[in-house]
C-alpha cells in the first residue's frame, strides 16, 4: 500500500509514492539516485547515513521516507550549493574544503555523514574546541582516519566560516 509523499531534496521537490516501511536512506539512494549518502549499519550506530532534515543532522537509516513528507532534506550532493556565496556556481562548502585540505578522509565512506554532522555542529557552535568536536562526532564512526585529521578539518572550516561572517 503505497503512500504519497512530497519531499524537497537539495532544493528540488519530489512527489513520490513509497511503501510506508521504506527508509529515508533507501528513498534517497534507490528512488532518487542520490548515492552520496552511505549505509554502514542501518541501526543508527555509525552515522554514515547522516543527512540534514529541516536543517538538523539525522541518521537517515532511522527515519522513514514517509516521515520526511513535507520536509526539506540536504544530502552531501546538495551541500555545496547551500554554502554562502556558492549558489549555482558550484564550489565546495567550507567543511568539504576542510576535509580536502586537512586529509580528513581516506576511504571516504564515513565522510558524507561526518561532513553533515560537522555542518550541524558549526551551526550550533561556530568555534568549537577539540573536545567539543570530538564529542559532537560521537555518533559518527570512522575506521580509517583515527579522527585527528577530521578534527583539523572541522577547525579549518570553523575558521573559514567565521572569517566569512566578519
Amino acid at each position: 500500500m503505497a503512500v504519497e509523499i512530497q519531499v524537497r531534496v537539495n532544493g528540488k521537490t519530489h512527489d513520490s509514492r513509497v511503501e510506508p516501511r521504506l527508509l529515508l536512506v533507501h528513498y534517497l539512494r534507490d528512488v532518487l539516485g542520490l548515492t552520496g549518502t552511505h549505509i554502514g549499519c542501518e541501526t543508527s550506530l555509525c552515522g554514515a547515513c547522516t543527512v540534514l532534515l529541516d536543517g538538523k543532522a539525522v541518521k537517515s537509516c532511522t527515519v522513514l521516507a514517509v516521515q520526511a513528507d513535507g520536509s526539506e532534506v540536504t544530502t552531501i550532493e546538495g551541500l555545496a550549493a547551500q554554502a554562502p556565496g556558492n549558489g549555482a556556481k558550484g564550489g565546495l562548502h567550507p567543511v568539504q574544503e576542510g576535509f580536502w585540505e586537512k586529509h580528513g578522509l581516506q576511504c571516504g565512506y564515513c565522510t558524507p555523514g561526518m561532513i553533515l554532522t560537522s555542518v550541524q555542529l558549526l551551526e550550533d557552535n561556530p568555534d568549537p574546541s577539540e573536545a567539543e568536536i570530538r564529542r559532537a562526532l560521537a555518533g559518527n564512526l570512522c575506521r580509517c582516519t583515527g579522527y585527528q585529521h577530521i578534527i583539523e578539518a572541522v577547525r579549518y572550516a570553523a575558521k573559514k566560516m567565521s572569517k566569512g561572517k566578519r
Partner: peptide, 21 residues
C-alpha cells in the same frame, strides 16, 4: 599534496558497490 581522489568523495560523487544501479 592534497589528495586527487577527494573532490569526488567529499561531494558524494564516488561510486561504491551499492551505488551501482
Amino acid at each position: 599534496l592534497k589528495r586527487k581522489e577527494d573532490p569526488r568523495l567529499i561531494q558524494g560523487l564516488g561510486h561504491y558497490v551499492d551505488d551501482l544501479q
